[in-house]
Design a protein around this nucleic acid. Structure first.
Length: 439
DNA sequence: TTTTGAGTTGTTCGA
DNA sequence: GTCGAACAACTCAAA
């Protein structure tokens, strides 16, 4: 084809509405070919019935339908490494420019740099935009230019900047939608074509009702109420826009929900500034902790057979649904790191395998928080008591009953470790490690 | 440079 | 059952 076109490359922004990079592409003059790459370097390590892949696949199909029905266009689906795909696609089309949105993870940064280098040689501009956060990279920093590593001052500065700028512009493509490349017939890719089969685990439905946000702070800690939004997967893959979510959060006088959105950006900027925290403690000394890393115990934790009902309920919910209530995530994480003295990276990797809303920055940030090794982390001597947590946050046992019914009947396993002993062992281990590290 | 106040989400113990 | 203090010490942010 010899008509010059622009490519819009979808990544973690799988929506047509209020998608900045897409809007910029459509406003640029050339017809826009939307494209998605099923990246073999990411897919290669996943089981062939991975539930996130099914979710992404269905979402992309939804985009395809919308493009067809509303814009007489389609989406160009590709399979391979991004570099292979760009080599091919620059032969298939006369590409005038490539548009996409910023992506901040270490892999994504390298990937985009290599694509930029490739396109540079061909003289094709590569335009990228901020879209998945309100503030990125170095936009929220201290007066001396350093990044924040404590949440509260970061949040205050974030809100200060937000109050001043409050840029919740809606990148509405209605007026430029005619600039999609007009082609309704592009080859279809089925799940089997990318080496996958359909997962039986459905994505949790998303709830952003104002009533939920208004009572977020008071209800969110009770897993049986299910009073959280399940927004995670939708934000993770960009089915919803952060600007629209922030608008909703802003409409409520209850600050807790918005704080959660700010935590997301806090951890993203931490990962941006300190990429080594992906597999190293933010606080160096904590890398010296002599983890016990008992494989059998790890297995019991994964399967939800620890003998602590709150821990087991959480792990079973995770295994069966790809989701775990936030309160319970803290409990199981604390249990793994402190009670079992198993390396937080093991837990982090397991969550990565299972969570629908898995996001590298948040997952690493929160696991390091639980382990005590991260930014603004829980102090090491703070050990969650899984029984007390159940009394406080699942007083009627409704959550536990749902996932661990035998706890109220017969056949429930006994506690794999004694709480008091495990707690003392954890505090002692941390204490000795940190003391010897100093000297 | 120095100082000061503060820091997501807890638990245990003793009064 | 309820309440407040101790836990243990450090680092960060900002004045």
């Amino acid at each position: 084809m010899d008509t010059p076109i622009s490519i819009f490359w979808f990544r973690r922004d799988l929506r047509l509405d209020d998608n900045r990079g897409l809007y910029e592409a459509l406003s640029s003059g050339h017809p826009v070919v939307p494209m998605f790459v099923f990246d073999t370097s990411i897919l290669g390590v996943l089981p062939n019935n991975d539930h996130r892949v099914t979710f992404i696949y269905d979402t992309v199909q939804g985009l395809r339908d919308d493009l067809q029905n509303h814009y007489h266009s389609s989406i160009d689906l590709r399979y391979g490494t991004p570099l292979e795909v760009f080599k091919k696609i620059t032969n298939d089309y006369e590409v005038a420019a490539v548009y996409t949105n910023h992506d901040y993870e270490p892999y994504a940064k390298d990937r985009d740099q290599s694509i930029k280098n490739f396109l540079d040689v061909k003289g094709i501009p590569f335009y990228t935009f901020k879209d998945q956060v309100i503030f990125e990279k170095e936009e929220v920093i201290k007066d001396d230019g350093d990044p924040y590593v404590v949440y509260t001052p970061y949040m205050k500065k974030w809100r200060q900047l937000f109050d001043r700028e409050k840029d919740l512009y809606n990148y509405d493509i209605k007026s430029v939608g005619k600039n999609f490349y007009q082609h309704t017939r592009l080859p279809q890719l089925d799940l089997v074509d990318i080496g996958f089969e359909r997962s039986s685990i459905p994505v949790p439905a998303c709830d952003m009702a104002s009533s939920l946000i208004d009572h977020y702070g008071e209800n969110r800690d009770y897993p049986s109420l299910d009073a959280t939004s399940h927004l995670g997967p939708y934000l993770r893959f960009g089915l919803v826009s952060i600007r629209r979510m922030m608008e909703k959060a802003l409409a409520s006088s209850e600050p807790t929900f918005m704080n959660e959105l700010i935590w997301r950006e806090f951890f993203m900027q931490i990962l941006w500034h300190y990429p080594h925290t992906v597999d190293h403690a933010f606080r160096e000394a904590y890398d010296a902790i002599p983890w016990i890393n008992n494989e059998d115990q790890f297995q019991k934790w994964k399967e939800g057979r620890t003998g602590y009902p709150m821990v087991d309920a959480g792990m079973r919910q995770l295994n069966q649904t790809g989701y775990m209530h936030n309160r319970v995530r803290m409990i199981v994480a604390s249990f793994l790191c402190k009670h079992l003295l198993i390396d937080w990276r093991w837990g982090e990797r397991y969550f990565a395998e299972k969570l629908f809303d898995y996001d590298l920055a948040s997952n690493v940030g929160n696991w390091q928080w639980a382990a005590g090794s991260g930014v603004d982390a829980a102090p090491y001597f703070r050990v969650f008591n899984p029984s007390t947590q159940m009394e406080k946050f699942d007083p009627d046992g409704l959550y536990v009953k749902r996932w661990v019914p035998e706890y109220f009947g017969v056949g429930y396993v006994s506690e794999m470790v004694d709480h008091k002993e495990a707690r003392e062992r954890a505090i002692e281990t941390y204490k000795i490690t940190l003391e010897s590290y100093k000297s």
